[in-house]
Design a protein around this nucleic acid. Structure first.
Lengths: 237, 237
DNA sequence: CGAAACACTATACACTGTCAGGAGTTATGG
DNA sequence: CCATAACTCCTGACAGTGTATAGTGTTTCG
């Protein structure tokens, strides 16, 4: 089994070989990841450099290698660690409630760690915490008897929508006044060539809540589609 | 008007000031972008460095600055240039056909330029070609009288789903045999803890077509949801 | 007790984006 | 007509990045 996989699943049975031969380890993988994650939360993924993380422990960059391997491995470990699933709300009366409960919980995680949206979720190597989310979603499908053929596309849509919503929310919260002016200048540049776009609701003063409302609306849309019997009925009038 | 915006809209009326004072320009913005895009297509976004692009013209990195500005501007220009919209298929009998025509066309663009999925589409500054796609999608909504309240969430879902599908397709096509072995080793590591995940269709030999089929199924799902009357009806049994 | 395995440091290498200055070229204003 | 402002492009530099390599010292195994 790969070293990286062992590290990913270290809290679910996989054991890093403990009786080691060299000097004592002065660092701890979980602490390293906590520091790296707090760095990313505060200043973005590009602030997470091997030297910056190691400096928090008064160590050099190379000291991290026995713990996390390469930088890409570090990022994958951060991704899974930050994806820890909370206890989901128990109220699941119907499919729409079950899906929106799952979606908003995942949305909260992405809001707390906006850099997660920059990481691909189509990774071949996924960790235990990300698997938990997938299993929970499939549990909702199972509970409300979603037809199997619709499950894979629904999974894709839900993950993609949650991530896209969190991404726009994060982008909004990073907007400065100067950015807003620049945006309006750009919008004013070609006003009449795109009538339909212009008719869309623009950035309103309450865009704090707009992403979450949009997410719920999208999930409800999908829930009705799933209840209508799946894609093979879509051609019916 | 910002220099960057002028460059973005240079083919839609915005004019870069032509009677300039210094020596003749030896490069051309469109050629620079073509080279940068071909670089990204072949070797990924991280292969696009200012020095690498400039070297194709036997120039130094700094020679690009009068044409594209900063690296971030270069990426934004590439993004829009690569997003040029082809003529969409004219057959749009019903909403599902209209949406899947739009979605597969955008999907093809993303397949041709996989690095587009790494770029945020929630950018405040969007270019003309990306606007074209948005306008076309809203045109489909308008044509089939999609209720206005459902349009914004539907836009999010469609874009997000197309991008996610293209991302997984790109990840699949990059998979080597060694990656596949590693993936199976990881899947075998914890077999029984995730029964529902295990029951999902695994990576089949025909994963070339799986993403596209998944995209169509997802779009049909959404179309039925939209035709069912929107999210306010989702609570009905 | 020797030797193998390990943690960590120091140094170095090949990159990255872009700032600062300078040389040379072109159009403009007086 | 000519000084000057504006422009293009180059050189060199700087502060970063991830990580390969070599070396030092420590711990445990045979």
């Amino acid at each position: 089994m790969d070293d990286h996989l062992k590290r990913l699943w270290r809290h679910r049975g996989a054991t890093l070989p403990t009786p080691r031969r060299g000097p004592r380890q002065q660092l701890d993988l979980d602490e390293i990841l906590a520091v790296a994650i707090s760095l990313a939360d505060a200043s973005g993924l590009e602030a997470v450099s091997t030297r910056a993380v190691a400096a928090r422990f008064d160590k050099t960059a190379m000291a991290l290698y026995p713990y996390v391997g390469t930088k890409e491995n570090l990022l994958a470990l951060m991704q899974d660690q930050a994806s820890a699933m909370p206890a989901l709300s128990v109220a699941q009366e119907d499919l729409a409630e079950g899906l929106s409960g799952w979606a908003t919980a995942l949305y909260e995680v992405y809001l707390a760690h906006p850099w997660l949206t920059e990481r691909s979720w189509a990774q071949a190597t996924q960790g235990p915490n990300e698997q938990d989310w997938m299993e929970a979603l499939l549990g909702v499908f199972e509970r409300f008897a979603v037809p199997p053929a619709s499950r894979t596309p629904a999974v894709t849509m839900l993950y993609a929508t949650v991530r896209a919503t969190a991404q726009t929310a994060a982008a909004y919260s990073r907007l400065t006044d100067a950015d807003l002016e620049a945006w309006q200048a750009g919008a004013a540049a070609v006003p009449d060539a795109y009538p339909l776009t212009a008719a869309l609701p623009a950035i309103t003063p309450n865009w704090q809540d707009a992403p979450r409302a949009g997410l719920l609306a999208a999930v409800n849309l999908l829930a009705t589609g799933l209840q209508a019997g799946g894609p093979h009925l879509s051609r019916r009038d």
